[in-house]
């Protein structure tokens, strides 16, 4: 199963390097799942967040109320409780999800509420004059939102949105509590399955897990910084919090 096995055999049994060699292929599989979870959740959150934000800024009474209540509820409660509601709660309604799907939906719905607030803040920070000018040129309301308001709002939202991506990556680790086979869970499973002289290495396993998270977070932060530089427009900068 471990393609490095022949090489690992040559390392001293019970040493830290041997441990790294033995378990890193499986940990990387877990990392791949973590990324899959993060990307799908953030995408779901993006679509949901945008709709919620439009609902909160431009929506009529019932839409405004629903989207506001959703955002307040989600932001006021722990993501873990939300995951429990989805994973353990939905089967009561005959909806059974595997842990990964439940985690994607749970983290995505959670992120939507936070992203909605970034988008709302950005949309509202765009002066009313932009809308007036767009209407004066003859654009319809929907065209004005599509061509003038959103392009500006989306650019302004990149810095807080970058933070949200990193947050989701970090918070995806809670999925391990409902048994999603992501990085944390893989670490836990490996640590519990070690036998013989290599057993009881939880601390070291989680150190390696921590190191992988650290590298992922730092590398992605750097990439997002570069992205920000590329799409920057004079006068539309927004400070990264």
């Amino acid at each position: 199963m471990n393609p490095l096995a022949p090489f690992c055999q040559t390392l001293e049994e019970g040493s830290f390097v041997r441990l790294v060699c033995d378990i890193s292929p499986r940990l990387l599989q877990g990392t791949a799942t973590t990324f899959q979870l993060t990307v799908l959740a953030i995408a779901l959150g993006l679509v949901g967040g945008l709709l919620l934000a439009l609902g909160r800024v431009y929506g009529k009474k019932p839409i405004y109320w629903l989207s506001t209540a959703y955002v307040q509820f989600v932001r006021g409660t722990p993501v873990l409780v939300q995951l429990f509601l989805i994973y353990y709660g939905l089967p009561a309604f005959e909806i059974r999800l595997d842990p990964l799907t439940a985690a994607i939906i749970g983290l995505g719905l959670n992120s939507a509420a936070y992203q909605a607030e970034y988008f709302r803040g950005a949309i509202q920070s765009i002066g009313r004059g932009q809308m007036l000018a767009a209407r004066a040129v003859g654009l319809t309301n929907v065209q004005a939102i599509g061509y003038v308001i959103l392009p500006q709002a989306l650019r302004m939202v990149i810095p807080p949105w970058s933070n949200e991506l990193i947050y989701t990556l970090k918070y995806s680790s809670v999925a391990f509590i409902i048994g999603t086979p992501e990085l944390m869970a893989t670490g836990q499973i490996i640590a519990s399955s070690l036998r013989g002289p290599g057993a009881f290495r939880h601390f070291e396993v989680f150190l390696i897990v921590a190191f992988i998270y650290l590298v992922c977070v730092l590398v992605i932060s750097k990439l997002l910084d570069l992205l920000e530089q590329r799409v920057k427009i004079p006068g539309l900068e927004m400070q990264r919090a």
């Binding site: 970090k170 836990q188 601390f203 150190l207 897990v209 921590a210 998270y213 932060s221």
Partner: peptide
């Protein structure tokens, strides 16, 4: 930088087992 980059859950596990270690 380190503490902000770390998922809190991972830190919990590292410390939980690390202190015992």
């Amino acid at each position: 930088r380190f503490f902000r980059a770390m998922p809190i859950l991972v830190l919990l596990m590292v410390f939980f087992y690390g202190l015992a270690f």
